[in-house]
């Protein structure tokens, strides 16, 4: 995986300051959107009420101010770490997390389609494999065993029927 990435973008680097700035910038964007949306909220029927838009607007302004503060702090900091350039290669240690997240989203999409038992078995097999326990027979077996155990506990113990899947009906 990492070798492939190395080749595909050999000289690509990202300024670490941009990484630092990403969250405050995204937050400002979200807060501005909330501010915009909230300004269209209708007034309350109760005469003495400040209306549904007051609190979201106050929170959004507060959040934008805090984020601006953080941005100023980041831009003013002048130590070596903050100006270093990070090669994209350095992110390869996180690749397993990204694969895990993708698998989780796939699991979520599959659950309503094929049901919990099938989707979760696939999901767990994939994750166990990812974490280095790789055996052609044992990996899926462990996944089946744990998935069934969860199913039994929830279905019979807690009376929570888990999704059965539309395609299999």
């Amino acid at each position: 995986m990492s070798a492939q990435q190395e080749k595909s973008c050999p000289g690509f680097q990202i300024h670490s300051r941009w990484l630092e700035l990403s969250i405050p910038l995204i937050t400002i964007a979200l807060a501005s959107f909330a501010l915009f949306t909230a300004s269209f909220f209708p007034a309350s029927l109760l005469k003495t009420d400040v209306g549904p838009s007051r609190f979201p607007i106050v929170y959004a302004i507060l959040l934008i101010a805090l984020c601006l503060g953080l941005i100023v702090l980041i831009l003013r900091t002048k130590n070596a770490a903050s100006t270093a350039k990070i090669s994209l290669r350095d992110f390869r240690t996180e690749i397993k997390s990204v694969v895990g997240i993708v698998a989780s989203v796939a699991n979520f999409v599959l659950i309503p389609l094929v049901g919990f038992l099938v989707a979760n078995t696939l999901y767990m097999t994939c994750l166990i494999w990812l974490l280095g326990y790789r055996h052609r027979l044992m990996t899926p077996l462990v996944a089946v065993a744990i998935t069934s155990l969860i199913y039994v506990v929830f279905y019979f113990g807690l009376n929570v029927p888990l999704p059965e899947g539309e395609l299999l009906d």
Binding site: G100, S104, N107, F108, I111, F116, N120, Y123, M124, L127, I128, L131, G132, Y133, V142, A143, I146, T147, I150, F154, L158, V160, P161, L162, P163
Partner: peptide, 21 residues
């Protein structure tokens, strides 16, 4: 970890589902 982390993630999914089905 190869067993624990996948189990935790599965429990997150099932536990979340169980609150409101």
């Amino acid at each position: 970890k190869a067993i624990l982390t996948p189990t935790i993630l599965s429990l997150c999914v099932v536990g979340t589902y169980a609150i409101n089905n």
